[in-house]
Amino acid sequence: MDLQTKLRQEARKLLEEKLVDVVIGYEDEGAPLRTTPCFITDPQDVDRLVWNPFCDHNLARYLTARKDKAAVVAKGCDTRAIVVLINENQIERKNVNILGMPCGGIVDRKKIYNHLKNGDVREAVLKDKVITVKGLEFTADLMVDDFLADCCLSCRHRNPVLCDVQIGENLPPLDVKDEYKKIKQLEESTSEERWEYFRKTLSKCIRCYACREACPLCYCQQCFTDQNFPAWVGKTTDISDTIVFHIMRAFHTTGRCVDCGACERSCPNNVDIRMLTKKIAKDVKELFGDEAGLQLEEKAPLSFYNEDDPQDFIK
């Protein structure tokens, strides 16, 4: 039985037995190369649920605002986000039923558009690992694995770290090479080059806050950008304001970011948001040996004191 069928079965069971009020999953509304989140409350609707490499949203994002009991379809990275949310008191473990999906990586649409020289994809059919895309003037067969999102290429937690039901067998760990290749390049460049890089990529930002809203961990009731007493950051798209927004957001994810890539995928203007968050995640891992969202009741690395902490900077 394929995973999608299993998923639907499990969802039907949960709804029929009234174990959950809603199943949050993905459905296909016909748009090529993408799925859309869906909220299923009626067992008869479970066949809307799909599971494919276009299921790119981090649905943990929808859990924080809910008061009811929800089942959520979650990939490895999504389960890590859920773990962080539980650790940060944002969801109660008993209120969430995790349908864990071992995930071989999701497709980055933008990579396909790029490959097709910004070709307008009007139809896409997935069969096994081949996507047949059609536009007005072209047809092409593309391999899923050639268009995986960057965060999936360096994924170390493809299987759920926490779940109530796991749909399908564990996947073997990915042979990750050069996880920090881009980061290292940036680290090795001069400060002028780095500044120019950040200026260039962040100047594309239009402050629509899609990155913030797509991030499961940006759950603050009022974001620092929205505060005006004191006003932490200007509201314009001046590069100084935009940089403050992105750097502060990255700081706020320190030791928490699970590198699901939702921020970067949601950006309408292709800002390299992960460059900041991934760099911080790298630092946290190197300094504190910590990766976010792997264990319940784990404290964030910057929230407790450990005698073994590297403390040269204090001396």
């Binding site: 940060e88 008191n89 944002q90 759950y219 603050c220 009731q221 009022q222 505060q227 404290k299 964030a300 910057l302 929230s303 407790f304």
Partner: peptide, 21 residues
């Protein structure tokens, strides 16, 4: 309270154990 979302980070870092969620 209108902004606080109860994440508990402040309680974790409080050296005087003065904060509870």
């Amino acid at each position: 309270e209108s902004i606080c979302i109860g994440c508990g980070m402040c309680a974790d870092v409080c050296a005087y154990k003065a904060i509870e969620i």
